[in-house]
Nucleic acid binder design. Structure first.
Length: 444
RNA sequence: GUGGUCGUAGCUCAAUUGGUUAGAGCACCGGGUUGUGAUCCCGGGGGUUACGGGUUCGAGCCCCGCCGAUCACCCCA
């Protein structure tokens, strides 16, 4: 627009004050849920040696990374596209001295050199939660419960979002028991992963090529296998599904019990088509989706018992997930759950506690700056105007637009009234020390 | 990397279809009235119509390029 205009790079975002407050709001939700579930915050460098990312994913990943070398240097680096390799590196380095389990979370900025589209940018925040050194279903359930905790904390319900759970090893074993050779499992996983991208008949035909019947294909087509508590708890109880899901159900039975114990079974669908693209998942896998299927996955993760070893650590079981801020925000908006501006400022801790103004009398006006200074020494978020007008109505309007909680109106050299800007209630003229004392007692 | 759609003020949109000096609301800034967030009045800053070429007597409008946004494909850790 201007003669010389600089645009933000493709796929990045500018954060003006309200945008920054919204980001803070999401970050605080993530941190709160992590901490109350006993996870400790870690972090690492924003960029790593390029090799760290090719170890797990191969050279094909390079085109999706922002990689670079220092001018005159030789080593190749890359902005982190995910946190897991860094996490594995951190753990492997100190594995012997870390407790079991080790529970870590972080909220890093991550970068991917892909073409941006809805729900996907080139720079974004990704909440990572990992539980390392425990291979129990209880650990699986705790990871899912931490994820659900954030969703619930943001006002989402099981009607808004669904947690789709599967178990890779169980599914693989079941396929083997149906006569499908192990070396074809990968192809079937890939087919399941792409299920929603093809018409139903085409999918059924593709499934048939793996030796499954029409009825069995239909179960994959529907995806969701509802495992209610009644079906799960009494072992061996028949379901009315047309295919034999006994093996599958037995495999997820311990996990189901843990999810019931964690109080989150209402959020869960067992879904045979959730396989996650990554080859390194070894057990439970899950994704969180908006209930109607809109948007991309909100979160995804699972068990990766071989990965720590791959990055040079001792053989260590682990389970974890990642959640990006972009899709999460979209879903909150879709479901009408995104907080108002005032709520964002409130929860981000950015609302002014008090807006100080005078009634325009010279002796009252002289008190404004000292009062603001005094309040700030008391660690109170205090503001006053930069305008020249002393029109009380205009100044109160400014106070309201700042979302200040209280207006302190200096009436004379010695007295002031306090006005609650939420309720409109106002005190009688009060001696200044008493008015200030009221502010320190009641931040509300 | 491929394709579709779209770029006018900070935001939402106008501009009689190619015709004079690109307008309005909101927002922002200044002032006034009413001693209390409202209403009302006056004034102001802001645009190389994303950018660069071309056609034309004349381009916000048509053509080409480029950048960006958006949606989808590829991919999705």
């Amino acid at each position: 627009m201007a003669k010389q205009s600089y645009q933000a790079p493709t796929g990045t975002r500018d954060f003006y004050p309200l945008d920054a407050a919204k980001r803070r709001f999401v970050l605080e939700a993530w941190r709160r849920a992590s901490i109350i579930h006993g996870f400790e915050e870690v972090d690492g460098p924003t960029f790593e040696h390029l090799e760290l990312y090719t170890v797990k994913s191969g050279d094909g990943i390079i085109s999706e990374l922002f990689s670079f070398t220092r001018d005159g240097g030789e080593k190749a680096y890359a902005l982190r596209p995910e946190f897991t390799p860094t996490l594995a590196r951190l753990y492997a380095t100190k594995a012997n001295s870390l407790p079991k389990p080790t529970k870590w979370f972080c909220t890093p900025t991550t970068f991917r050199a892909e073409r941006p589209q809805r729900g996907r940018l080139r720079e974004f925040l990704q909440w990572n939660v990992d539980l390392i050194g425990d291979n129990s279903p209880q650990a699986d359930a705790e990871i899912i419960a931490t994820c659900v905790s954030v969703l619930a904390g943001l006002g989402l319900t099981p009607q808004d979002v669904r947690v789709k759970v599967n178990h890779r090893q169980a599914l693989a074993d079941w396929l083997t028991s149906r006569g499908l050779p192990t070396d074809r499992h990968g192809d079937l996983f890939k087919l399941l992963d792409n299920k929603h991208k093809m018409p139903a008949p085409q999918f059924a035909q593709a499934i048939a090529q793996f030796g499954f019947t029409i009825e069995q294909a239909d179960v994959f087509q529907k995806g969701i296998v509802r495992v209610t508590v009644d079906e799960v708890l009494p072992t061996g109880q028949k379901t009315d599904h047309v295919v034999d899901l006994t093996y599958f159900s037995e495999a997820v039975l311990p996990l189901s019990k843990e999810l019931v114990a964690a109080g989150i079974i209402d959020w869960i669908d067992f879904d045979l088509s959730i396989v996650r693209g990554l080859a390194y998942y070894t057990g439970m896998v899950f994704e969180v989706h908006e209930a109607s299927g809109a948007e991309r996955a909100i979160a995804g993760g699972g068990r990766y018992d071989n990965l720590i070893e791959l990055f040079g650590g001792p053989p260590t079981p682990a389970v974890g997930f990642g959640m990006g801020d972009v899709v999460l925000s979209l879903v909150l908006q879709d479901r009408g759950k995104f907080p108002t501006d005032e709520q964002v400022l409130e929860l981000a801790g950015l609302r002014p506690d008090v807006y100080v103004l005078s009634n325009g009398m010279p002796e009252a006006e002289l008190q404004v700056k000292p009062i603001v200074a005094q309040l700030r020494k008391l660690n109170i978020h205090a503001r006053s105007t930069y305008k020249t007008t002393r029109n009380v109505g205009k100044l109160l309007q400014e106070a309201a637009s700042m979302k200040a909680r209280v207006a302190l109106i200096v009436e004379s050299a010695t007295h002031a009234t306090l006005k609650n800007l939420t309720t409109g209630e106002q005190t009688q003229p009060t001696p200044l020390p008493q008015a200030i004392a009221l502010l320190t007692q009641r931040p509300a």
